[in-house]
Design a protein around this nucleic acid. Structure first.
Length: 708
RNA sequence: GCCGGGAUGGCGGAAUUGGUAGACGCACGGGACUCAAAAUCCCGCGGUGGCGACACCAUGAGGGUUCGAUUCCCUCUCCCGGCACCA
């Protein structure tokens, strides 16, 4: 019905999202990037990157290096007679070779050759395999579906104890991971346990976990933990590592297996059956096979004048594009009409940006600029894009194109901006999405959205909850409206002051007025000051207590804002700090020359501190404060250490960790003097109820806690 | 299901290395200015009790460590991101 290849996202419950037509899985030839070759390096070089730990952890888990044993369960006589694959048996990989004596079944994926063979002359099994193949391809779907299986009637042999083991086809065995087959140890694997329970297969305990109770009635969390072998013949008494070593050694002696490393990471399929993309430069020759397009004929240019007719790939229907000669034999051949995954482009665009007119892929300018000091992107790219780009960089390095190991030295991952999602099923069952401003929400007593009505005709629409802004779900917002109404400075200020950039946020523009108001207030403050004439900023001289406090606040603010911008990358608190400073500034009414000099100092610095966020307003206000000079030429504000010196400081007084009062103490006071003053404090006397202090905790510059 | 993250007033958030929970705002309430409005300015604003001084409770839920926990540990709930063709 859809006449096209669908992306995973476009398949909902096995049907096309627009048409509700059933989706078919088909095998097609594709090109892959061999990212698995780089698995170790991609894993190991994460350690040196200035990236958020959570992102590094996600990448580590995604690559998923595990150490285990790969071995053969030899075919039993019945099976050996039927399997004509030249193999001695069923290859499996396990990280728990120590549990090998607990094998009570084996399981293979529906696509496994053993399953195919067993299905011959077994219509029930053939039907089951067909059903398995129909399911989705997404990991989430596979992991949450009901575990189902069917016996094949074929057997393999446990090579350690020579017990026959029946082979099952199971929908939870992934064809793409390991060997597409596994040893079933229900005694010590939760999924195997559930499977064995469902189909009445034996469950055998072969590991004792610190003497914890064991029963085959129900699975307990500790069943899968490491422990000491029992019921395991010659392996009895061995611990996890020793047992694995012993089993691996025995399998090796029999020529059946060996230790090896397994990755969760899979090779990267890049072929897309789409028109609008980068053509894959391969020619398919009936005589020579797949032949790369010679360098001299690169790049293969995508024709940009094709008109899609609504079915299949336009490139595959355009002889002028695909008809060509084989670069090897010169005979008639056909181009690959697939285009590349756009992740390919995003894997190295940043290098090309350094040399967009280079005649080669990149030139020495890319080498000059790379690696990137600071990369900024959404957290949704934590794995795929950022892993592909790292791999691609290493591949380019190995091709001698650039001499760097990693593309992004430091990384800031932005949180996602979420918005409400509204949709409904159309007449044919397909999904239709509506923008939030197209609907009127229906709210329950607690204020939660329960549904919506289309503004246009009042027809009901479903509320799907909140989620990432996306084109397909039509829930994005365009900042242009805000920019036109309030200006780019206000729009940027509003977004920056709301929350740290790494936070996930639900979009709202309700309080943008507050940001606009602040910038107008700043404008008024500068103009009011300047209307009495500009003066030189404070550079020394006697200050009143109030002016001293204002300068203390100013220089603390300079310190904090610099740290927020430069180290913490938390801009909302930088803005709050400047607001605090200006709140204190407006409390003053002193118009003496020294007060005006401090005012000049405060305003100039406030403007400088806000420049990265509101550059336009800051530029104009600077010209008012310092006629004849330009903001862009000014250095970043410097902290005046003299302004930070204080004679006395306020300490918090606690009794048993509870706030009971404050004391003002000279900064020169010793710990003993502070303790003495705290014990004598009236609130301490009151709340300690006549008891003597058991312990006094003094945190310099912060608090004193009297424990009674 | 698995991996990563989050939950703090009516709302956005702050508390940076275990040390005053609620900075700074929004919304709201009261007041000033005004013929009136807008704009602006001032005051209040977590909950409970109290005239008040003040006290107690409170950072998704439950438990623990500590003189002291929003912060560390354990268990749980819900939400968000990713799960290889959304990119």
């Amino acid at each position: 019905v859809d006449m096209t290849v669908l992306a995973n996202e476009q398949v909902i419950d096995g049907r096309g999202w627009r048409t509700n037509a059933p989706v078919e899985k088909r095998e097609i030839p594709m090109w892959y990037m061999r990212i698995t070759q780089y698995a170790d390096e991609l894993l190991d070089s994460l350690d040196g990157l200035g990236w958020p730990e959570q992102v590094k952890q996600m990448q580590r888990n995604w690559i998923g290096r595990s150490h285990g044993v790969e071995f053969t369960l030899p075919y039993a006589a019945d099976t050996a007679a039927r399997m004509k694959d030249g193999k001695k048996g069923l290859r499996v990989f396990t990280t728990r070779a120590d549990t090998i004596m607990g094998i009570t079944f084996a399981a293979v994926a529906a696509e496994h050759p053993l399953a195919t063979e067993a299905a011959k002359g077994n219509p029930k099994l053939a039907a089951f395999i067909e059903e398995c193949k129909k399911g989705g391809v997404q990991e989430a779907e596979l992991a949450t579906m009901e575990k189902k299986g069917m016996a094949t009637g074929l057997h393999v042999v446990n090579p350690i104890n020579n017990e026959p083991v029946e082979v099952w086809v199971a929908n939870y065995v992934l064809w793409g991971y390991g060997e597409g087959a596994l040893m079933g140890v229900p005694g010590h694997d939760e999924r195997d346990f559930a499977f064995a329970k469902k189909y009445g297969l034996p469950i055998r305990q072969v590991i004792d976990i610190a003497g914890k109770p064991y029963s085959t009635d129900a699975h307990q969390p500790w069943y899968d933990e490491h422990g000491r072998n029992i019921n395991s013949g010659k392996y009895d008494g061995l611990g996890y590592e020793a047992a694995i070593d012993a089993v691996a050694k025995d399998l090796e002696a029999m020529g059946l297996g060996t230790k090896r490393i397994q990755y969760r990471l899979r090779d990267w399929g890049i072929s897309r059956q789409r028109y609008w993309g980068t053509p894959i430069p391969i020619v398919i020759c009936p005589k020579c096979g797949d032949v790369p397009v010679p360098d001299s004929e690169l790049p293969v240019i995508l024709p940009d004048d094709l008109v899609p007719d609504g079915s299949g790939s336009p490139l595959a229907k355009t002889p002028s594009f695909y008809e060509t000669k084989c670069p090897k034999c010169g005979g008639a051949a056909r181009r690959d009409t697939d285009t590349m995954d756009t992740f390919v482009d995003s894997s190295w665009y940043y290098m090309r940006y350094a040399c967009p007119d280079a005649g080669t892929m990149v030139d020495e300018r890319a080498q000059y600029w790379m690696p990137m000091d600071q990369y900024i992107g959404g957290i949704e790219h934590a794995i795929l894009h950022l892993l592909y780009a790292r791999f691609w960089t290493k591949a380019m390095r190995d091709l001698g194109l650039i001499n760097i190991d990693e593309p992004f030295t430091n990384l800031l991952t932005q949180g996602m901006v979420l918005n409400h999602i509204f949709s409904r099923r159309g007449a044919r069952g397909g999904i239709e999405y509506f923008a939030p401003d197209e609907v009127e929400t229906v709210v329950d007593a607690e204020g939660r959205i329960t549904g919506a009505k289309l503004k246009a005709d009042g027809s009901p629409v479903d509320y799907e909850g909140i989620g990432t802004m996306s084109k397909s779900k039509r829930n994005g917002v365009d900042p242009q409206d805000m920019i036109e109404r309030y200006g780019a400075d206000t729009a940027r200020f509003y977004v920056m002051q709301a929350n740290p950039p790494t936070d996930t946020v639900l979009w709202s523009d309700e309080s943008v007025e507050g940001s606009f108001k602040f910038l107008r207030r700043l404008w008024a403050m500068v103009h009011e000051h300047v209307s009495a004439g500009v003066v030189a900023p404070y550079s020394g001289g006697e200050l009143t207590a109030q002016l001293k406090a204002l300068r203390l606040k100013l220089h603390r603010t300079i310190e904090k804002v610099g740290d927020d911008y430069g180290r913490r990358m938390q801009f909302n608190t930088a803005i709050a700090a400047v607001r605090e400073l200006l709140n204190l500034y407006t409390d003053g009414t002193d118009k003496s020359p020294v007060a005006r000099a401090v005012a000049q100092e405060v305003l100039e610095n406030a403007i400088l501190l806000l420049t990265p966020i509101v550059p336009h307003i800051a530029t104009v206000l600077w010209r008012e404060l310092r006629p004849g000079t330009e903001l862009i030429a000014q250095p970043w504000p410097q902290v005046d250490p003299d302004a930070l010196v204080q004679d006395s400081i306020e300490l918090v007084v606690q009794v048993n960790g509870k706030l009971r009062g404050h004391i003002q103490v000279p900064t020169s006071w010793s710990r003993a003097q502070i303790e003495e003053a705290a014990v004598a404090h009236e609130a301490v006397v009151k709340f300690s109820g006549g008891q003597k202090a058991k312990k006094i905790v003094v945190v310099p510059g912060k608090l004193v806690n009297v424990v009674v």
